[in-house]
Nucleic acid binder design. Structure first.
Lengths: 143, 143
DNA sequence: ATTACTGCAAAGCATTTGCAGACTG
DNA sequence: CAGTCTGCAAATGCTTTGCAGTAAT
């Protein structure tokens, strides 16, 4: 990554560049441990706690977005591309699929406390991905 | 709670009744530790790990719904009243406010992988509640 | 009486923190 | 060179698990 693209306000270290590179090339949100694993395969090993610190910094700077899915066992991080989108999550294999439109576009929420100032939102769909749906149907038939 | 209302398929113990009672009278989702604290004030103290086991059972049986909000630091549980609703969460004090309508009602998601079978969804709004909004405005003026 | 449930203690797992040495600007 | 960042280890906090005694059906 060239210097001109480096987010301002933070030192450019090998570790940060490596983590950002992973996120830059990922098309789905990744957990800290997945990022750590992928970085490990490169030529710049990065300690897991450092990955967490970098992700925290990136989140603060708005470079990445931190999310959780399902029961929220762990956090996922994705490059902030300033594109508004949501995800569908497979409840079976936990695969994440992108949703390209947004139900909130023309929505006027009816809040119990109407003094609440809504700043943002998050939508998550859950169900079965192609593979798990297929596998489950076959299993059902076999039983 | 009378026996006729007790969810079938599980023994009726003091501990379970106490936890269900808390959830029955709560109008917002509670964390395991909040439930534990509230139970502690009653005449049936329940060990925290037992609260977790009870909540796990209740979730399995569909008696309660397990959720996470914001970054998903911890899980929240609410009585499953089979009413479809969502929540708005204050990003400052984490207070939870109910939303009484649903943006997904007439929504057709455009999925990247159209073989995905959507079974359910979750919508979360975030922003500032009345109190935090007010407090922040005052603070801004003072600076 | 049999089986399931709870108290209690200890482990588990993702994440955070403290510190000294290493690196960036 | 000064200040920040990283490797490493140890701690933290929510949650889960193992086991033996207790309670429900």
């Amino acid at each position: 990554m060239t210097d001109s693209l480096w987010p301002s306000g933070m030192k450019r270290t090998k570790q940060r560049a490596a983590v950002l590179d992973i996120l830059e090339h990922a098309d789905i949100p990744l957990s800290a441990m997945e990022i750590h694993a992928r970085v490990g395969h490169g030529d710049t090993p990065v300690w897991l706690s450092t990955v967490y610190r970098i992700l925290e910094l990136f989140t603060e700077k708005g470079v990445v977005i931190k999310t959780t899915v399902l029961d929220g066992d762990m956090a996922y991080y994705e490059r902030n591309r300033h594109a508004h989108h949501h995800y569908a999550v497979c409840v079976d294999c936990h695969k994440i699929v992108a949703v390209n439109n947004c139900p909130m576009a023309e929505f006027e929420p009816k809040l119990s406390d109407d003094a609440f100032r809504v700043m943002g939102h998050r939508v998550e769909m859950y169900g079965y991905c192609r593979d798990c749906d297929k596998r489950n149907n076959i299993t059902d038939k076999d039983v």
